[in-house]
Design a protein around this nucleic acid. Structure first.
Lengths: 206, 206
DNA sequence: GTTTGAATTAAACGTTTGTTTAATTTTGTG
DNA sequence: CACAAAATTAAACAAACGTTTAATTCAAAC
């Protein structure tokens, strides 16, 4: 599906409303009103509310694998590669946090009508990349073998999401109260915390 | 609010439907039908759909602090205390995973109509308990001082939730396909992973 | 300038939503 | 049994939902 300017505008508006109020908590009338288009345009362009979300996910997620490959091939020792990979993942997820929030939420529902095939396929691809890196590090004797590789994904990604979903709570603990300082916190302190956590977990030294 | 058998039955039914299809994705008619009660009983008992969720949260969350206190006062060195605390948190969250899922989801919405004051107050209390334990360990020279204490909560809790929300995906990686084996996996492998991660992070040795 | 297909509109479609009503039944108490 | 309060019911409420219709405007091609 090729997206024109107007379609992209609608998707941007929808994305933010979905993230604010949930997929079911957002009506197509709200989206149309906020985006200043006629209600019928949403069915006209996307077919349905569900297919609009699919279009949004595709629009946001395409390119992830390509970028990830690039980051993984950067120079550096194994621990530096872990640093790069985590920094990239957090940055990419944070930049796309709105669509990730909706995707996570809808994906975990039982009677969902949204198609998640591509989403899951990408998840598997990304995992394979990470698994390969860690196994190479283990064979080189740099990384500990006493780790559950698949569970490192929930630790990296879950730390970010649980922080972000409870942003207000944690930012109070860090005495950060300006919304514009959150981005900075994510890219510095939160990223450093996750890097430190995973590197210590992978280290052989204790 | 004192809950009779019938109210509790309704809450149990509502909890599972909310977790399956979301709060907005579940209608009071669905709940009433599944619980085999008249629709009007929900307003009669709880006042509204939102207040029913508040009643559910209160019903599920009460007692957490008391149990947490007990676990924290158990015998053992600092690392054993961390083990006990994490095992307790994961067990308690996993047992109440349905209501936590709804609570997390609704809490992160902007225009929510559900009252979360007690929920947040409890979060703060729990954090203070954990912070105190870690600071004591640091002063005793057992724990590293180079950690972001508030961010350890997202790492513990976020790892669990990201695993659970993507349960199917990760259980495939571990070649577990029976639903009844998930509980066991959570209490053994997943708990061990989180304990290992946090203990390594807190260790001084590298 | 006319034709053609896409874009856009206001209005209406039938459902479903959460809540309330008013009547009835059940329950417990004197 | 008689009475009062609580519990339960079927029905109705207005509002909001996602989608479709049919008519109209617009833009590009010939």
């Amino acid at each position: 599906m090729d997206l024109g300017e107007k379609q992209i505008h609608i998707l941007n508006v929808a994305e933010k409303l979905f993230a604010k109020n949930g997929f079911d908590g957002t009506s197509v009338r709200q989206i149309a009103s906020e985006a200043d288009v006629n209600i019928a345009m949403i069915s006209y362009y996307f077919g349905s509310k569900e297919k609009m979300l699919e279009a949004l996910m595709h629009y946001r997620f395409e390119g992830f694998r390509r970028e990830m490959d690039k980051v993984m091939s950067e120079e550096g020792d194994y621990f530096e590669k872990i640093d790069h990979m985590i920094a990239f993942m957090i940055k990419r997820i944070h930049q796309n946090r709105y669509v990730y929030k909706v995707a996570n939420s809808e994906y975990s529902k039982q009677n969902r009508q949204v198609n998640f095939e591509k989403y899951v396929a990408q998840k598997i691809e990304n995992y394979k990349l990470i698994e390969a890196l860690i196994k190479r590090g283990q064979q080189a004797g740099v990384f500990s073998s006493e780790v559950y590789i698949p569970l490192m994904i929930p630790t990296v990604v879950g730390t970010y999401f649980h922080f972000y979903y409870n942003k207000k709570f944690f930012m109070t603990l860090f005495e950060v109260d300006k919304e514009e300082d959150v981005d900075d916190f994510v890219y510095t302190t939160l990223t450093a915390h996750i890097q430190q956590t995973i590197k210590k977990l992978l280290s052989n030294e204790n």
